[in-house]
C-alpha cells in the first residue's frame, strides 16, 4: 500500500516534470470545460442568487429550498438527463453535440449553477441586511441594489465560484456519460482517472488525482491571495 502511494506520487511527479504532452492536453481540456461551465453557471447563478436575496415574492422560500437541495445533485443524474436531451433521439438531438466538450460544459454548468445560486444567495442576503436601508435611502431600486450587492460582495463571490469550479473539475459521472471519454476529444482528468483505475493502473490513476488536486489547490490559493489583498485594500 505504502509502496503504491509512493509510486503514485512518483508517477505524478514524472508526468509533470516531463510535461507529458498527452497529460497537458487532458489538463487543458479539463480546465477549459470546467472553467467555461463555471462562467456559464455564474452568469445564471449569481443574478439568480441576487434576485432571491433582495426580492420578496410568493414561492421564494420554495425556490431557496429547491436550490439548496439541488446543490447535492448527483452528477450521474445530471449526466443522464443531459444525455437524454442531447441524444439524437432526444429533443435537442439535432444539435449534434453529444460526445463533444460542449455537452460536457452543459452538464457541468447544470451541476454548478445551483451551487453558485444557493451560496451566493446566502452571502448576498447577509449583505442586503447590512445595505438595505442605506441603498433605499439613496433611492436604489431592487435591480440596482442587486447589482450593487453583487459588486460589493465580489470577493466572497469569487470563493463561491471557485467552489463551483472545484465541484465541476472533480466530477466524473456527468462528463463520462455525455462526453463518452473519447481519447483526444472528450477525455478529461477525471475520466482518465476512471479509465486508468479500470485498467488496474492504480498508481497512474492516483498520480493523475494528485495532479488534479494540485491544480485545484493552486487555483484556490491564488484566489485566496487575491481575496486577502483585496480585503486589505477595500475593507
Amino acid at each position: 500500500m505504502m509502496n503504491d502511494l509512493g509510486r503514485a506520487f512518483a508517477e505524478a511527479f514524472g508526468l509533470v516534470a516531463r510535461l507529458d504532452p498527452q497529460l497537458l492536453d487532458i489538463v487543458a481540456l479539463s480546465l477549459k470545460v470546467s472553467l467555461t461551465a463555471v462562467v456559464l453557471a455564474a452568469l445564471v447563478g449569481l443574478p439568480l442568487g441576487a434576485v432571491l436575496a433582495v426580492e420578496r415574492f410568493r414561492g421564494r422560500q420554495a425556490v431557496v429550498v429547491l436550490l439548496n437541495a439541488l446543490m447535492g445533485l448527483p452528477p450521474v443524474v445530471v449526466g443522464l438527463l443531459v444525455y437524454l436531451l442531447l441524444s439524437r433521439a432526444g429533443p435537442l438531438g439535432s444539435l449534434g453535440i453529444l460526445f463533444t466538450p460542449a455537452a460536457m460544459i452543459v452538464a457541468q454548468a447544470i451541476l454548478v449553477t445551483p451551487i453558485v445560486a444557493a451560496l451566493s444567495r446566502q452571502v448576498l442576503e447577509d449583505a442586503w441586511r447590512e445595505y438595505e436601508e442605506q441603498l433605499r435611502s439613496l433611492g436604489a431600486r431592487r435591480m440596482t441594489a442587486a447589482i450593487t450587492l453583487l459588486w460589493d460582495t465580489r470577493f466572497s463571490l469569487v470563493t463561491i465560484v471557485l467552489a463551483g469550479f472545484g465541484r465541476a473539475a472533480a466530477e466524473v459521472g456527468a462528463v463520462m456519460i455525455v462526453g463518452g471519454n473519447i481519447d483526444g476529444v472528450t477525455r478529461v482528468m477525471t475520466t482518465t482517472i476512471a479509465l486508468e483505475t479500470s485498467k488496474g493502473d492504480l498508481p497512474l490513476a492516483l498520480g493523475l488525482g494528485v495532479i488534479l488536486v494540485g491544480l485545484v489547490i493552486m487555483l484556490n490559493a491564488a484566489a485566496s491571495l487575491i481575496r486577502e489583498a483585496a480585503l486589505r485594500r477595500y475593507g
Binding site: 445595505y131 436601508e133 442605506q134 459588486w151 460589493d152 465580489r154 475593507g235
Partner: peptide, 8 residues
C-alpha cells in the same frame, strides 16, 4: 445613519 454603510 448611526453606523455608516460604505460600499467597497
Amino acid at each position: 445613519f448611526q453606523r455608516p454603510v460604505m460600499l467597497r
